[in-house]
Amino acid sequence: MSVATPSPSCDSFRELLAVYVIGALEPEQASEVRTHLGTCSACEAEQVELAQIVAFLDAIRRAWPDPPWIAERPASPMPPSKGMA
């Protein structure tokens, strides 16, 4: 199965895919991305790949506890992953 090449009109959506995958988009933007993903196989394939990477990194994070010095640093501004969107 071949995946279509993203068109120039996909650029704005492709910039949002990583943020979409971690669940950090505003609801209106997330809805726009979901609509686009339903019509664009290239962006959908990229979203699937990003979601797999996020899931892999989350599994690594859960498999190894943080070293003690991590608890001493300020919290990250990045929200926790919601897994595959």
Results as ranks from 00 to 15, higher is better:
P65A: 12
W69N: 08
A59S: 15
S12I: 13
T5N: 11
V33R: 01
P65N: 15
V33S: 01
E15Q: 07
P80N: 03
V3K: 09
M84N: 00
C40W: 08
E15K: 14
S31V: 01
A42G: 13
A42H: 07
D11L: 05
Y20H: 12
T35C: 03
E49M: 07
L37V: 03
S81R: 00
F13D: 06
C40Q: 09
K82Q: 00
A24F: 05
A30K: 01
D11W: 11
D66T: 11
M84P: 00
G38I: 07
R34Y: 02
E46S: 06
T5D: 11
P79R: 02
F13E: 03
E49H: 09
V48E: 06
S9Y: 15
Y20Q: 02
T39D: 09
A59Q: 15
A71I: 12
M1R: 09
P6H: 15
S2D: 15
V19H: 14
P67T: 12
P67L: 13
E32T: 03
P67W: 15
T35Y: 10
R62K: 15
R61F: 07
L25D: 01
S12H: 12
A63M: 15
A30P: 01
F56S: 09
K82I: 01
E49C: 02
T5W: 06
T39W: 11
T35R: 08
A18P: 04
C10H: 09
A4H: 13
R62E: 15
Q47A: 05
V54E: 15
I22L: 04
P68H: 09
R73E: 11
H36F: 02
A24R: 04
V21R: 06
A24V: 04
P65G: 08
R34M: 05
P80M: 04
C10Y: 07
P74F: 03
R14Q: 10
I70R: 12
V54N: 08
E46W: 00
S12T: 09
S2E: 14
H36S: 02
P67D: 15
T5H: 14
I53R: 12
L16Y: 06
C40L: 10
A85W: 00
I22P: 01
T35H: 11
P74T: 06
K82V: 02
F56N: 08
V3F: 12
T39N: 03
V19R: 15
E49Y: 09
E26Q: 07
A4Q: 14
I53V: 11
L57V: 05
A75K: 12
P8Y: 07
A85P: 00
G83D: 02
A71Y: 14
P6M: 13
L16D: 10
